[in-house]
């Protein structure tokens, strides 16, 4: 495997060719914010939180979908990037009805944690307060569109890992919504296996187990590595 060398935050590092810039950055122990990225799923490049500055290029690059290249010089944490990341979080919070206090995932939510980490303590934009439904037709799980950030982790895990492809995206723009089957009540979808992977990968309280009350939902992502390691590398122990 060929190796490339690049500079990340003034530090010269090497990485296998054809890997993502994000994985190199994370390997350096740099804490870079991500939301739609989840190890084990294909990259979507949607949340744009992992954008980095690239020397000699006026554009910003989402590191999750940018392959490493020889001689790259990147900066992961400049004042401009911090400002943009804060704005992106605020845009997400203004888009739907994120009421942390009454959320099943209060205290364990990736959006909430990232906001605090990035110093977002208020939202400068108008809240859009959309009138969105909640689908509790599934026998075990609930989807609450009010808390969805459209990262599509659920859609990807359903398609790529479970192989059911029950969930997908309907509508467009700010009207986009995660849908089950042919945009039908989730409980009536015949392709759903009820595996619950979508629930576990969801970064917010949009997907949760029935019966969870405020702050009770804690999610596990490590099952994904376990399944994929088993499938692809025949390693069958929790790592």
């Amino acid at each position: 495997m060929s190796v490339v060398t690049l500079t990340i935050d003034d530090k010269l590092v090497s990485a296998p060719a054809n890997t993502s810039l994000l994985s190199s950055i994370q390997e350096q122990g740099i804490d870079i914010p991500t939301l739609c990225h989840l190890k084990g799923l294909s990259e979507r490049g949607g949340c744009r939180l992992c954008v980095v500055e690239m020397e000699g290029n006026p554009r910003l690059f989402a590191s999750c979908v940018t392959p490493v290249a020889e001689g790259m010089v990147v900066r992961t944490n400049t004042a401009k990037l911090l400002k943009y990341r804060q704005m992106m979080i605020e845009l997400l919070m203004a888009q739907r009805n994120h009421v942390c206090a009454v959320c099943v995932q209060n205290g364990h939510c990736e959006l909430q944690t990232l906001a605090a980490k990035l110093g977002v303590t208020s939202v400068r934009y108008d809240y859009m307060c959309p009138d969105l439904p909640m689908d509790a037709s599934h026998e075990r799980y609930v989807i609450d569109h009010n808390r969805c950030i459209l990262c599509a982790r659920c859609i990807r895990v359903c398609d790529e890992v479970e192989g059911a492809h029950t969930l997908d995206m309907g509508g467009r723009g700010v009207q986009s919504r995660v849908i089950a089957g042919m945009n039908q009540p989730w409980g009536t979808s015949r392709s759903c296996t009820g595996c619950g992977k979508c629930v576990q990968v969801c970064p917010t309280g949009a997907l949760f187990k029935k019966g969870s009350s405020a702050a009770e939902m804690v999610k596990q992502h490590d099952f994904l590595t376990w399944i994929l390691d088993g499938r692809e590398k025949k390693i069958w122990h929790w790592r």
Binding site: L49, M88, A94, I149
Partner: peptide, 21 residues
Amino acid sequence: CMDESCGKCGPCRGGTVQMHR
């Protein structure tokens, strides 16, 4: 643009709405 944004990436999805507002 707000109506035509596909909604995949956050900045365009949310940004166009807020700019329009």
